[in-house]
Design a protein around this nucleic acid. Structure first.
Lengths: 171, 171
DNA sequence: CGTTAACTTCACAAATTTCTGAAAGAAGCG
DNA sequence: CGCTTCTTTCAGAAATTTGTGAAGTTAACG
């Protein structure tokens, strides 16, 4: 009874728990490599791979074998960067964490906040080093790049929404 | 002789070392927050803020007050992600590390490698969970998003190069 | 209005990461 | 061909991060 299901078999849930886990861990590893902390990455992976797109704290804890505290921390992180939203199951103290597909895109776009802070730092640098110095010029060009990117990102998301509807309908 | 220059004064180099340092540390902090290790961030900041855009190992060590070993590690990291290139000063064992402005852009674009791995993980997930399941569908849509982004990024860089020439000339 | 279920916070232990000093390894120069 | 100068590698110390158990807090339900 160490393993509730045989490897590769579809269990009582109608899903191959082994396959799900493999995906979750593999995908989470990529997120980690991109700089996201481990627990948030794993929780996000589990939500992505869930059929409803939403899981409770207990379900996450069981599937990932982590403590309630770890779930709590991970979810707080993910909510902060807008990668999941919290739902209150009506008539229950149970909370439910959900990925909206569009939230996911927005979250990536939310790197804008980071870009904005980079821009601030660069502007400050240009000012204090002098726009007429070689270093100042380099900073100014970098700043221009980010400002350009910022605008592009926005129109890119617009194009995506159109592209998406053509391929996935109203979603 | 603990401090070669008075605070805020322009030294023999003709630059306000204090102002440079402030920028470097501030900018580096933003990079760190975005997920880059600290030493690489600081080294990169120092290079960005240098007049020539290139510094030797010793110069970096002195300016940032870090050991040669730390410089070595940071530079290796930065070279790996294509954010600096190494130059051999002819007729000297001294090496010189440089930021090319375009390298910087390319580096950001090099996140493509990361995206590619995300895509692989997602494709695998779609296959093993089944494209006809709700979870599989969600993964497929996410995958489509990344594939879309990949193409967009490329054309965005093209547009940037044009935009840049109009504003900065041949650079 | 008390009881209980669920989530969060806190302090600590463990693991990982990061930086340093010391020694070894290249590469020009005499 | 040995010396000198610069860089890298390595092992270990220090600091930071991460996850847990346990206590605390909130809110539904009888």
């Amino acid at each position: 009874m160490t393993e509730p299901e045989a490897v590769g078999a579809a269990g009582a849930t109608g899903r191959d728990a082994e396959a799900v886990s493999r995906f979750v861990e593999h995908f989470a590893a990529q997120l980690v490599e991109a700089g996201m902390p481990r627990m948030p990455s794993r929780v996000f992976g589990a939500l992505l791979a869930s059929d409803t797109g939403a899981l409770t704290s207990v379900e996450l804890g069981e599937q990932l074998r982590i403590s309630p505290a770890a779930v709590s921390g991970a979810v707080r992180y993910l909510a902060q960067v807008h990668m999941v939203s919290r739902e209150r199951e009506p008539g229950s103290r149970r909370e439910r964490y959900r990925v909206h597909s569009d939230q996911w895109y927005e979250a990536l776009t939310n790197r804008e906040a980071i870009i904005k802070r980079w821009e601030d730092a660069l502007r400050e640098g240009v000012a204090s080093l002098g726009a007429d110095t070689p270093a100042g010029g380099r900073l100014a060009e970098t700043l221009a790049f980010f400002e350009f990117m910022e605008g592009e990102l926005e129109s890119m998301m617009d194009r995506w929404r159109i592209h998406r509807e053509q391929h996935f309908g109203e979603g």
